[in-house]
Design a protein around this nucleic acid. Structure first.
Length: 423
RNA sequence: GUGGGUGUAGCUCAGUGGUAGAGCACUGGACUGUGGCUCCGGUUGUCGCGGGUUCGAUCCCCGUCACUCACCCCA
């Protein structure tokens, strides 16, 4: 084979896309119930948008961007959805026509990581963004939306983690506190964490290295140094989550790797299916500084993204769609084949999926094929039937067969399928 | 980006220094026009790719690519 898909980028074949479509439509409906509408933004944006919004010290921007140049413009494939959505929001001046904007999106994202189960170079996210509400009630509602979506799909054993990293003031103060605590223990930290100590010390808090974990276990919690406004917001979030009945766990070490977060952070993990190390199904947080930082109005915002590939892995067979009954037409001979084409169209006109096997072959092999396709009915049509103005209809599940007048077949089969679907 | 594991038929996998097998799938027949069961037959491979050692390599060695797991990162 000469060509293969680019590393970390995968084809989705029909068996898979059926599962995807089911989850996607469930997401659209779920987000719609909360008042979210779909936004579609370009996959390619100015490189600078991500450097500025996602943050130049984030790993995503530092090492994982697919960059390109066109007529002197530096462009990039989007590594996440939030910056593009925020840009679109500002370009359209949405804040001038509505106080609060709720958008959701579905789409491909690109990060040049080492591929792994549940982690690909082209992957799909579904996400929500909420502009114009400072929270904390809407923070709780958004977390509830995310967790509720997973539950609706049938996922159990979900772990909802929350934290607050405060506003810029709190974070700067905490950063100093943390560096002061970690520096004496520097030699006990992993090599990676030692580097982080200089550029992004908060990230050490969620290191998986046991060395780092031991040191971090004794570190001061950011929740203890929240300023009054941050504290009030945090308490309000917890009260609202309790009122909504959302189960959660406070994890002071939850940090997340995008630079723009303020205050509320959250993540939903699952042990279901075959997720392996990529057990974060979705996550997000508040990013009150982004819109202003991009030259727009000083408006608060919060959002999340969930990984479609991971969600599908976690769901396993649970994402398999229910098959609708359909008809298979098995014509014997050339004359019957033409009649079969006509009958198939009659069925389709009534909204019934139908297919004709025009390849010829024995009745045995045609029935075998009908069986393999899991058709509900197989219509057998040969010279004998044509001459008598009837067809043989085989109910493949019931192993029964009856003769029906040719003129009535389509309507009768539709009635049969409707009856079954109603059960 | 770093480290480990694995690459043999469409799928799941066995196998041996003398150029390949099973099950499933597909297909034909037993049953001149009746499936999913049974029985019998048939098709399918550059043994991931390139190089080396050897009389000879799918097997040993080196490289490379892909997949996979972990780190890292995050969805």
């Amino acid at each position: 084979m000469q060509f293969r898909a680019v590393k970390g980028m995968n084809d989705l074949l029909p068996e898979e896309t059926e599962r995807w479509q089911r989850v996607e439509s469930a997401f659209r409906r779920h987000a719609g119930l909360y008042g979210y509408s779909e936004v579609r933004t370009p996959i390619v944006e100015a490189l600078e948008l991500f450097v500025h919004a996602t943050g130049e010290t984030s790993e995503v921007v530092e090492k994982q961007m697919f960059e390109m140049e066109r007529s002197g413009e530096r462009l990039a494939l989007r590594p996440e959805g939030t910056p593009g959505s925020a840009r679109a929001f500002l370009n359209a001046s949405r804040h001038a026509r509505e106080p609060v904007t709720r958008w959701y999106y579905l789409g491909q994202m690109f990060r040049a990581e080492q591929p792994q189960r549940g982690r690909y170079r082209q992957f799909n996210q579904a996400g929500c963004e909420l502009y114009g509400d400072p929270g904390p009630l809407c923070d709780a509602e958004l977390i509830g939306l995310l967790a509720g979506f997973f539950q609706e799909l049938g996922l159990r054993d979900l772990d909802v983690l929350i934290n607050s990293i405060g506003g810029p003031g709190t974070r700067a103060r905490y950063r100093e506190t943390l560096v002061a605590y970690l520096t004496p223990h520097k030699d006990a930290l992993s090599e990676h964490a030692q580097r982080r100590l200089l550029d992004n010390p908060l990230r050490i808090l969620d290191s998986k290295s046991t060395k780092d974990r031991e040191v971090v276990a004794g570190a001061p919690s950011i929740l203890d140094v929240l300023d009054d406004a941050d504290r009030e917001h945090w308490d309000g979030l917890r009260r609202a989550l309790d009122a909504l009945g959302v189960q959660y766990r406070v994890v002071p070490g939850l940090v997340r790797g995008l630079d723009y977060y303020t205050r509320t952070l959250f993540e939903v993990q699952s042990n279901a299916g075959e997720l392996g190390a990529q057990n974060t199904l979705g996550g997000g947080g508040r990013y009150d500084g982004m819109l202003k930082g991009m030259g727009g109005p000083d408006l608060p915002a919060i959002g999340f993204a969930l990984g479609m590939e991971r969600l599908l892995l976690a769901l396993g067979d649970a994402a398999a769609p229910v098959k609708e009954g359909h008809c298979f037409i098995a014509p014997l001979g050339d004359r019957a084949a033409l009649e079969g084409l006509k009958l198939a169209n009659e069925l389709r006109a009534l909204g019934v999926r139908a297919e004709v096997d025009g390849r010829g072959g024995s009745l045995k092999s045609l029935l075998r094929r009908a069986s393999g396709l899991e058709a509900r009915y197989c219509v057998v049509l040969g010279d004998n039937e044509l001459d008598r103005g009837i067809v043989q209809v085989k109910n493949l599940a019931a192993h029964s067969q009856e003769e029906l007048p040719r003129a009535e077949v389509a309507a009768r089969l539709r009635a049969g399928l409707t009856r079954e679907a109603g059960r």
